[in-house]
Design a protein around this nucleic acid. Structure first.
Length: 920
DNA sequence: TTGCTCACG
DNA sequence: GACGTACGTGAGCAAC
C-alpha cells in the first residue's frame, strides 16, 4: 500500500537509547531511592521526536529478553556484555508501561533483535523513514529514503552524512563493521584493524570481498592478522548484517498512536515522581511531592523547587555541605566570608582549558567540615533554578579582589585564570595547598588534591570520574546533578582548608622553606598565570609551509631507505628497524637496550653511520624530520587559541623535583634550537605588530652557582675576571696558557664542566668526549687537583645527603633522596648524582623565579605595555612595544642580574628581534 | 598503558 | 669481577 501522507515513519531503537540514557544521564532517583534517570532520558527523547516529526506512523522497538537467532549462529555472541546493572533493569518494566500508556505502538518481538525489526519495518514501508538510534550499526540501513537521527546528539545521517561520519558509504558499512569487529558484542574483526585502517582498505580495494580476495597483498603484522581472520570474517559479516526480512505480524501502516491512558499515566508518574509530566496531565499536583531533581522540559514551567531536599546535605561524620540557591543564603555566606580571617574556595568550570573555562559554580569553606557550594550554571534537564551567574559573581567580585581577604586554594593559578575570564582579578592569594605540599616534599609524584587527601588526611575524595564518567562521553560540570555536585564541590573547598591546616604548621616550623614558599612560590602564581594568558604569537602559515617541505623531504628519505633495505618497512618502528639492520643486513649491534633489544638509539645509529652504512644515516635524518614535523610544525598551529590567535602553554609549578618549572600543552621549553632546520621553527614565534621579542638569558648560571656553593678559589676567580670559563678550565687542566688553549681542549673542558654539574663518572665523560676511559679519568683527576674546592664540595654534598637524607638549594629548597642509602649500587649512585645536580639546578630555578617576580612587579608598577611571555629555565622572553625596548632591556637585565647576590657575578645576555630565532 | 626516542635547559 | 653509568622535563609513536 502506497504511503499517502508526506509524514515519515519514525522508528525508535528503544534498547539503544535505554542504555545510552542510563550511562549518560546522572543517576536520578525518586524519593524512595528508585532510579529513574534512564526513564527520563527515553521519555524526553520520545517527546522530542514526536514534536520534531509529528509522525502518523511511529513505533518504539525494544529487544526481547532471551536468545536470538544470532546466538544460535555464534554461541559467543555478546559474550562480553556485562550483566545489566540492577539500577537499569528495574527501570525497564515501568518505562515500557509508561510508553504503552502514552499511546505509542510498542514492539518487542521474541527471537529477533530490535535492529532486525527496525530493518524489516523500514524495508516494508513505502515512504520516508526516520530511524532514531544511537547505534552505529544502523548506518547500513541508510539510503535515499531511510535516514537516521541520533536524538541524543542531534546528529542526522543521510547517505552523505554516513560517508562523512564513517568515511564509507552506507552499502559498505557492513564490510566496515566486519573488519573492525565489535568487542562489546564479541564479534571478531581483524586484529589491530580499527576505523582508520578499515576505511583505508575499503577505499583502496572497494569491498570486503575484494580485500579478502587479495589478502596476500597486505604487508606487515596487520597483513598476517588479516589472513588469520579470513576464516571467521564471513560469520562476522552475517552477525553485523541487520535482517530486513523477519516475519512480523504487523505492517508499518498499522503502527498508529492510541489515546493515552490518563489514569494509568497519573499513577505511574506519581509513583516515580515525574512532576512536570504530572502537571502536564492536567490533574492537580499533590502538595507534598518531594523534588527529585529531574525533568523540566523547555517551556513547561514547574513550580520553584523546594530547597529543603537539597540543603544541608550532610553525612554522619559531622560534615555539613550546603547548596546555596537563594539570595538569602548567599547573603549569609558573603557576610561569613567577609568576616573570616581567611577562607578556602574552589571554582567548578566547563573546561580544563584555562583560557576558555566558564564558571559553573563556586565552593567555600571557613572551618573544617563545613562548606557550601554555590551553583550558578548547571543546565542539565531538570536542573533547579539557580542564582544568576553574572549578578552573583558581581557580588563576589569585591571579596575576591580584596587583597586583605586571605584566600586558600588548590592550584589557584587555574582559579585565577577562570575568574579573569569573568572579569575578576583574584587578589589576596595567601596559600596554595599544592605548593605547600611541593615545598615540603618536591619528590612526591603528585600534588593533586585527591592524592594529598589520601596521603595526609586519610580521606578518599569523591573522584570526578565517579560523578562525570570518563572518555569522550564525560560530562562537564554544568551537566552534573546538584545532588552530586554539592558534595563533590563543597568537599573540594573543605579538603583544601583541611590540607592547609595540615601543611601550614609544618611549613612554619621550617624557616627557609617557609620563606621560599611565601616569597617565591606563592607570589609566582599570579606571574605564571599572566605569562600563560599573555600567550605567544605563532605564525601558522609559516609552520604549514615548513610542514610541507618536511613532508617532501621525508618521502625522499623513505624511498632511499626502502632501496637501501631492499624492502618497505616502518622507519619509525624501532622493532622493524632492528630486524632489518641486525638480522637482514647483518650489521653488528653495538649495544642493547635495557630490555635486551638491539638498540637503535641515536648514538648507535651514528656509530653505524660513521662506519659507512647508508641506512642508519637515512634513519637518523628521517627521525629528525619526523620529530620536527609531528611535534612542532604540525601540532603548534593546532594549539593556537582561535580567540586570541596565540598559543597558551601551561606552566607547572609542582612537577619538577629540583624546583624548576615545566611546560605543557604545548611544551614551549623544548622548541628546537640546536640545528639549522630546527631553528626555523623559532622563526615562527613572532612579535605582534609594533613589538619586538626580547630574549634574556643567564650565562653559565649553573657553573656560577657551583663556584659560589663550592667557594673554589680558582673557579671564583675565573668568573670574577669575566673569563670564558671553559677556556679557563682548559688552561688549568691542561696546563696551557689561556691564549694557547686549542679548540679541542676547550671542548673537553666544556664537557667536564657539564659533567660536573650532572655528577658525572669517568665512563660518561669518556663516552661524551669519545676518548678512552682512562684518559677521561685523568682529566677528572686533573680537574679536581686544580679545583680542590669543587672536589671538596662534591664530597661534602654526597656526605650531607647520606647523613640527612636530603640536599638543599642555596635558598633551602629541599630534595629528599631516600635512595642514597640503597644497597643497590646502581640505585644509590643514581641518587648520588641527583644529590650533586639538584642543588645547582634547583638554585638556578630559585634565582630565575625571584627574577620573574621582580620583573613582573616592575612591569606592573611602571605602567609599560611590555608582556612577559615565556620562561625556558634560564631564559625569559618578552614581547616589547618598540618604544619601550631600551628601557625594558636595561631594566630586565638589571633585575635578572640583581635577583640575588652571590660570590660570583651573574651575567645576562639579551637579544632583540622580530622572532624568537632573531632574538637569540 | 608502557617503553623508546628525541626536543629543550 | 660484573654491572651500569651525566641531571631535569614533555610529546609522539609503536606495541602491548
Amino acid at each position: 500500500m502506497p504511503n499517502h501522507t508526506s509524514k515519515p515513519l519514525v522508528l525508535v531503537d528503544g534498547s539503544s537509547y535505554l542504555f545510552r540514557a542510563f550511562h549518560a544521564l546522572p543517576p536520578l532517583t525518586n524519593s524512595h531511592g528508585e532510579p529513574t534517570g534512564a526513564m527520563h532520558g527515553v521519555l524526553n527523547m520520545l517527546d522530542k521526536l514526536r514534536k520534531d516529526y509529528d509522525p502518523e506512523h511511529m513505533a518504539v522497538i525494544f529487544d526481547a529478553p532471551g536468545k536470538t537467532f544470532r546466538d544460535d549462529m555464534f554461541p559467543d555472541y555478546k559474550a562480553n556484555r556485562p550483566p545489566m546493572p540492577d539500577d537499569l533493569r528495574g527501570q525497564i518494566e515501568p518505562l515500557l508501561d509508561i510508553i504503552k500508556a502514552q499511546g505509542y505502538p510498542l514492539l518487542i518481538i521474541p527471537d529477533v533483535e530490535a535492529d532486525d525489526v527496525i530493518g524489516t519495518l523500514a524495508q516494508e514501508y513505502a515512504g520516508k523513514v526516520i530511524i532514531s538510534t544511537g547505534d552505529k550499526d544502523m548506518a547500513q540501513l541508510v539510503d535515499a529514503r531511510v535516514h537516521l537521527i541520533n536524538t541524543m546528539s542531534g546528529l542526522y545521517s543521510d547517505p552523505a552524512g554516513v560517508v562523512e561520519k564513517f568515511g564509507v558509504a552506507p552499502e559498505r558499512i557492513r564490510d566496515y563493521l566486519t573488519l573492525i569487529g565489535d568487542t562489546v558484542d564479541n564479534v571478531p574483526g581483524v586484529n589491530k584493524v580499527g576505523p582508520k585502517t578499515a576505511v583505508k582498505w575499503l577505499a583502496e580495494y572497494g569491498s570486503l570481498e575484494n580485500i579478502m580476495a587479495h589478502a596476500d597483498e597486505f604487508k606487515g603484522k596487520v597483513g598476517e592478522y588479516l589472513r588469520e581472520a579470513l576464516a571467521h570474517l564471513p560469520l562476522s559479516y552475517e552477525l553485523v548484517t541487520i535482517k530486513c526480512d523477519v516475519a512480523l505480524d504487523c505492517s508499518p501502516e498499522a503502527l498508529t498512536f492510541t489515546p493515552p491512558d490518563v489514569d494509568k499515566l497519573h499513577a505511574l508518574y506519581e509513583r516515580y515522581e515525574f512532576r512536570t509530566r504530572l502537571a502536564g496531565l492536567g490533574k492537580e499536583t499533590p502538595p507534598n511531592l518531594p523534588l527529585s531533581g529531574e525533568e523540566q522540559e523547555g517551556g513547561a514551567s514547574g513550580s520553584p523547587p523546594d530547597k529543603g531536599e537539597l540543603e544541608g546535605v550532610s553525612s554522619a561524620e559531622g560534615v555539613s555541605y550546603q547548596t546555596i540557591l537563594t539570595q538569602a543564603d548567599l547573603d549569609t555566606w558573603l557576610q561569613r566570608l567577609q568576616a573570616a580571617a581567611e577562607f578556602a574556595f574552589d571554582t567548578e568550570t566547563t573546561s580544563l582549558d584555562y583560557m576558555e573555562a566558564q564558571i559553573v559554580g563556586v565552593s567555600f569553606a571557613i572551618s573544617a567540615g563545613e562548606a557550601a557550594y554555590l551553583p550558578l550554571a548547571h543546565d542539565y534537564l531538570g536542573a533547579p533554578p539557580q542564582l544568576d551567574r553574572d549578578a552573583t559573581l558581581a557580588q563576589l567580585k569585591p571579596l575576591l579582589e580584596d587583597p586583605a581577604l586571605r584566600k586558600i586554594g588548590q592550584n589557584l593559578k587555574y582559579d585565577r585564570s577562570v575568574l579573569l575570564n569573568h572579569g575578576i582579578e583574584l587578589r589576596g592569594i595567601a596559600h596554595d595547598t599544592m605548593l605547600e605540599s611541593y615545598v615540603l616534599d618536591s619528590t612526591a609524584n603528585r600534588h593533586d588534591m585527591d592524592t594529598l587527601c589520601a596521603k595526609y588526611l586519610n580521606h578518599t575524595t569523591i573522584s570526578f570520574i565517579d560523578i562525570a564518567g570518563k572518555g569522550k562521553n564525560q560530562l562537564t560540570f554544568n551537566q552534573i546533578a546538584l545532588e552530586q555536585a554539592t558534595p563533590y564541590a563543597a568537599e573540594d573547598a573543605d579538603m583544601t582548608l583541611q590540607l592547609h591546616q595540615h601543611f601550614w604548621p609544618q611549613l612554619q616550623a621550617l624557616d627557609a622553606q617557609c620563606k621560599l614558599y611565601e616569597e617565591v612560590e606563592v607570589p609566582l602564581v599570579s606571574v605564571l598565570s599572566s605569562i600563560e594568558r599573555n600567550g605567544v604569537k605563532v605564525d601558522a602559515t609559516m609552520l604549514a609551509k615548513q610542514s610541507k617541505e618536511l613532508e617532501t623531504r621525508m618521502q625522499e628519505v623513505v624511498k632511499q631507505a626502502y632501496a637501501a633495505a631492499d624492502q618497505e618497512f616502518n622507519l619509525a618502528s624501532p622493532k622493524q628497524l632492528g630486524e632489518i639492520l641486525y638480522t637482514k643486513l647483518g650489521l653488528h649491534a653495538p649495544r642493547k637496550t635495557p630490555k635486551g633489544q638491539p638498540s637503535t638509539a641515536e648514538d648507535v645509529l651514528e656509530e653505524l653511520a660513521a662506519q659507512g652504512h647508508e641506512l642508519p644515516t637515512l634513519i637518523l635524518e628521517h627521525r629528525g624530520l619526523a620529530k620536527l614535523k609531528s611535534t612542532y610544525t604540525d601540532k603548534l598551529p593546532e594549539q593556537i587559541n582561535p580567540r586570541t590567535g596565540r598559543v597558551h602553554t601551561s606552566y607547572h609549578q609542582a612537577v619538577a623535583s629540583t624546583g624548576r618549572l615545566s611546560s605543557s600543552d604545548p611544551n614551549l621549553q623544548n622548541i628546537p634550537i640546536r640545528t639549522e632546520e630546527g631553528r626555523r621553527i623559532r622563526q615562527a614565534f613572532i612579535a605582534d605588530t609594533g613589538n619586538k621579542l626580547l630574549a634574556a638569558d643567564y650565562s653559565q648560571i649553573e657553573l656560577r652557582i657551583m663556584a659560589h656553593l663550592s667557594g673554589d678559589k680558582g673557579l671564583l676567580d675565573a668568573f670574577a675576571h669575566g673569563l670564558d670559563v671553559h677556556r679557563a678550565t682548559a688552561a688549568e687542566v691542561f696546563g696551557t696558557p689561556l691564549a694557547e688553549v686549542s679548540i679541542e681542549q676547550r671542548r673537553a673542558a666544556k664537557a667536564i664542566n657539564f659533567g660536573l654539574i650532572y655528577g658525572m663518572s669517568a665512563f660518561g665523560l669518556a663516552k661524551q668526549l669519545g676518548v678512552d676511559r682512562r684518559d677521561a679519568q685523568d682529566y677528572v683527576n686533573l680537574y679536581f687537583a686544580r679545583y680542590p674546592g669543587v672536589k671538596q664540595y662534591m664530597d661534602d654534598t654526597r656526605e650531607q645527603a647520606r647523613a640527612q637524607g636530603y640536599v638543599e638549594t642555596l635558598f633551602g629548597r629541599r630534595l629528599f633522596l631516600p635512595d642514597i642509602q640503597s644497597k643497590n649500587a646502581v640505585t644509590r649512585q643514581y641518587a648520588e648524582r641527583t644529590a650533586i645536580n639538584a642543588p645547582m639546578q634547583g638554585t638556578a630555578a630559585d634565582i630565575i623565579k625571584k627574577a620573574m617576580i621582580a620583573v613582573a612587579a616592575w612591569l606592573r608598577d611602571s605602567g609599560l605595555q611590555t608582556r612577559m611571555i615565556m620562561q625556558v629555565h634560564d631564559e625569559l622572553v618578552f614581547e616589547v612595544p618598540e618604544a619601550e625596548l631600551e628601557t625594558v632591556r636595561a631594566q630586565v637585565t638589571a633585575l635578572m642580574t640583581g635577583a640575588v647576590t652571590l660570590d660570583v657575578p651573574l651575567v645576562v645576555d639579551s637579544g632583540v628581534g622580530d622572532n624568537w630565532d632573531e632574538a637569540h
